[in-house]
């Protein structure tokens, strides 16, 4: 049995967490993973803290237990911190923030101690510059895929985004995904 991969996606209601979750889930399914996930609907979608859980592998339960997530993608910095308890030793986190002081000094100690690798991208600004201010989710996804640390790579995501985007958003979505990916490639160098 393959080891389960646990992913947490966080942000604020309205930032497009559900779409991001769907994209990753679909890409994973197309790669042959079993997919189990949990989403937030209802009241919190009106700007409150929103978290999605995604588990790839032979599991029955949709929620990730604290201390066991391998990846955290956060569309907002504070929401990223809020979900730190989910991360396992050696996990990776990717955060959308404009702050040059990421991560906050107080958080560094714990991140280093737990050997959590953290990276940030100004996904919101990038999306805005490309004319789709609400698509920071795609820039973050692209960025995540550039490091090729997870089960899903850029090519997989490109195919999926092409498949699941509504027609009139297809081009712009792919453009923003690519911008995020390029940013990640640069950072990797």
């Amino acid at each position: 049995m393959e080891k389960t991969i646990n992913i947490i996606l966080s942000g604020l209601g309205g930032q497009g967490i559900l779409f991001m979750t769907r994209a990753l889930a679909q890409a994973a399914l197309d790669k042959g993973f079993n997919v189990m996930g949990a989403e937030t609907h209802g009241m919190a979608q009106r700007g409150g803290s929103v978290v999605s859980h995604l588990r790839l592998g032979e599991v029955k339960s949709s929620l990730v237990r604290t201390g066991t997530a391998h990846f955290l993608l956060s569309l907002e910095e504070n929401e990223g911190y809020r979900n730190l308890p989910f991360l396992s030793h050696g996990a990776r986190m990717y955060v959308n923030t404009n702050s040059r002081h990421f991560p906050r000094e107080e958080a560094k100690g714990l991140l280093d101690k737990r050997k959590i690798i953290y990276r940030s991208i100004p996904a919101g600004i990038m999306a805005q510059e490309l004319g789709a201010p609400r698509s920071s989710n795609l820039a973050l996804l692209g960025y995540f895929s550039a490091f090729d640390e997870g089960p899903i790579n850029y090519k997989d995501l490109k195919t999926t985004i092409h498949k699941i985007s509504p027609k009139r958003f297809k081009d712009i979505n792919l453009k923003i995904l690519e911008a995020g990916y390029k940013k990640g490639k640069e950072a990797k160098k």
Binding site: M43, A44, R46, G48, P85, L87, L110
Partner: peptide, 25 residues
């Protein structure tokens, strides 16, 4: 087994993150 130390939870408390209450759009 559990490697779920309470440190992270404590850190989140100490960071005093703003509570994101839902609001009208």
């Amino acid at each position: 087994q559990s490697d779920d130390d309470q440190e992270a939870a404590q850190l989140v408390k100490d960071l005093e993150l703003p509570v994101r209450r839902p609001t009208l759009c």
